[in-house]
């Protein structure tokens, strides 16, 4: 299990991530979500042992990763920019990996490449962003890792490569019982892949939970209020977002219960219907509420 405990990191005294806790078990896929600049990549660099955390610890099966090659051998990491050696060819990279990683399986690389179709002769510097990402993913998987850390893996991929990537990831996770941490802005993708997610904001964890629990916690309602009502009157603290078309209101609620339902009825709500909501919508609406709160404070 990966155990991240109380990890903080500062760049020239400015804190970037603070007191981060999270775990990833073997066989689990955990998503990491946060706005640009929230500290995701910094956290990932601490987890992969590239940065030394200023406080706290990152342990893999109770062993420290920082400055510890034995642990690094069993961790695959695909960074967001895949900065491989530009003058090497694809087959050169494969040879390099074979030399460095004892468990590297060249046959596995070739099997994966049948799906992803990179030319072995191409120079790394001539590969596109999406191709570099495929290369990184194949190389790291061929190390036969126990854990896999992926930073924005789907951002440069075309739709066909992306669905292949997800299929292979899922297959490998099940086959090798790999524990995965994956960051992405594409929440629709994460929803299909992840068992658990960690939300970070301004360098702090705001939610560490099971995807289904989160989706159960927030409910989207379609409500008819005949004659309409001023949206600002729908102001219970657990109402996250309100929008309306005529007298049909769409309301997103944190912890929907009988009391809230009664309250809505007292405001004239007639037809209350629960509708399905994706992770993306949930995230965006909870963020926009925070934006509104901050504006109020500043005013």
């Amino acid at each position: 299990m990966i155990k991240v405990e109380n990890v903080s990191k500062r760049y020239s005294k400015i804190p970037v991530i603070e007191h981060i806790y999270l775990t990833v078990s073997r066989g689990e896929i955990r998503g990491l979500i946060g706005n640009n600049g929230a500290g995701k990549t910094t956290l990932i660099k601490c987890i992969t042992g590239i940065y030394k955390p200023d406080d706290g610890s990152v342990l893999y099966d109770d062993e420290k990763i920082y400055d510890n090659p034995d642990v690094k051998h069993k961790v695959g990491y695909v960074s967001d920019n895949c900065g491989y050696l530009g003058r090497y060819s694809v087959s050169g990279m494969v040879r390099l990996y074979e030399n460095y990683y004892p468990n590297f399986n060249k046959e596995k690389f070739n099997t994966l490449n049948e799906e992803f179709g990179l030319s072995l002769k191409s120079k790394v510097k001539n590969l596109s962003k999406g191709q570099k990402m495929r290369l990184g993913f194949m190389l790291e998987l061929s190390k036969q890792p126990e854990y896999l850390i992926l930073d924005e893996p789907t951002s440069g991929l075309d739709p066909v490569a992306k669905s292949k990537f997800m299929e292979i990831l899922v297959q490998e996770v099940e086959k090798g019982n790999i524990g995965v941490l994956i960051s992405s802005h594409n929440l629709g993708d994460l929803e299909k892949l992840c068992d658990t997610i960690t939300l970070i904001e301004d360098g702090k964890v705001t939610n560490n939970t099971n995807v289904d629990d989160l989706k159960e916690q927030f409910v989207k309602l379609q409500v008819v209020i005949p004659g309409g009502i001023d949206s600002s009157k729908l102001n219970l603290p657990n109402i996250v977002n309100v929008s309306n078309v005529g007298s049909v209101y769409t309301i997103i609620i944190d912890n929907y219960d009988k009391m809230t339902e009664e309250w809505l009825k007292s405001k004239g709500a007639e037809l209350i219907e629960v509708i399905d909501m994706g992770l993306e919508e949930l995230y965006v609406s909870s963020q926009s509420r925070k934006g509104a709160e901050q504006n109020e404070k500043m005013a």
């Binding site: 297959q171 099940e174 629709g188 299909k192 992840c194 068992d195 289904d212 989706k215």
Partner: peptide
């Protein structure tokens, strides 16, 4: 299909399929 594969195909969370 395995839990994860089914989740991908149906575009829903693996937890729901597992249940």
């Amino acid at each position: 299909p395995s839990v994860r594969k089914m989740a991908l195909e149906l575009s829903i969370t693996p937890g729901t399929v597992a249940k």
